[in-house]
Amino acid sequence: MSRQEIIDSHTHVDKVGWFDPPETIIRLLDEAKVDRAIIMTYVDAPGRTSDALEYIAESCARYPDRLIGYARMNPGYGQQAIDMFEHAIRHYGMKGLKLHPVSYLQHPASPQTVAIVQKAAELNTPVLFHCGDEELSLPLQIARLAELVPDARIILGHCGGYFHTKDAIRVAQRHANIYLETSAMPYPAMIRQAVESIGAHRVLYASDGPGCDPTIEVRKVRLAGLSPDEEHQLFFENIDSLLRLAGRKEAQP
C-alpha cells in the first residue's frame, strides 16, 4: 500500500442547522487526503426535518465510495425511534447510531437511551456519543450506559472536550466497550496518553468536519508521536473493524 488509508469517524452533512451539503465535506476530505468519512446530521430523527435519515442515505448514495452513514436519533420517541433506527441500518445500509444528549435532553443512561443502544448492540453497530464538557454528555455519565449495555460498542466523540479528556480516558480504562475519538479537542498529547492508557485498538481518528478541518485534525494525530502501526490503527483499522461487523447479527463481541 503506497499510502495509509484514512477513514474519518465523525463528520456532518445536513440541510438545516449549519447548512452543509455532502459536497462541503467531500471537498475538505479531498484536501486532507482522507479516503472515506462517516456522516450524520446535525438534527435528531424524528425531529425538525421529516427526512433526516433519507438525506444521509441519499448523500451516501451520491458518494458511495466516500461516505458512510450513521443515524442520529432522538431516543425520546421510544419504539418509533428504535424502529426508524433499525430501518436505517437494514434498508439504508447505515452503519451506526449517533446520540447527542445535549440536543434531545436525556441522560445517556436513561431507560429510553438504554433501549435504543440495546438495539444498536443487537445489530452490532457502534454508538457514537457527543462527549464534551456539558451536562448530559460527560464521560462519567456515558460510562453508566456502557455498564448497563456491555455488548454495545460506545465511542466517546471529542474524548471529553476541553476539560474532561482525563475522565474519558479513565472510563475507557474501566470499560472495555468504550472507544475514544479524537475530534475537535485541542490536545495532541491527550491522544498519546489515551493510546498509552487503553491501547491503540480503542482510539479512533475523527474530525467533526466540516466545521473542524479534517486536514488539521489529521495533523493533530500525527503530532501525537505514535508509531506508524498505531497511527494506522487510529486512522483506519479500528473503525474499519467496527464497520465490518455492523448489521451482522452473528458476530457478537
Binding site: P186, Y187, P188, A189, D213, T215, I216, R219, K220, L223
Partner: peptide, 13 residues
Amino acid sequence: YYDQEFEMERVRC
C-alpha cells in the same frame, strides 16, 4: 495550555 505546533495549523490551513 495548548500545543504551540498544533495551534499554528489553525492559521496555516
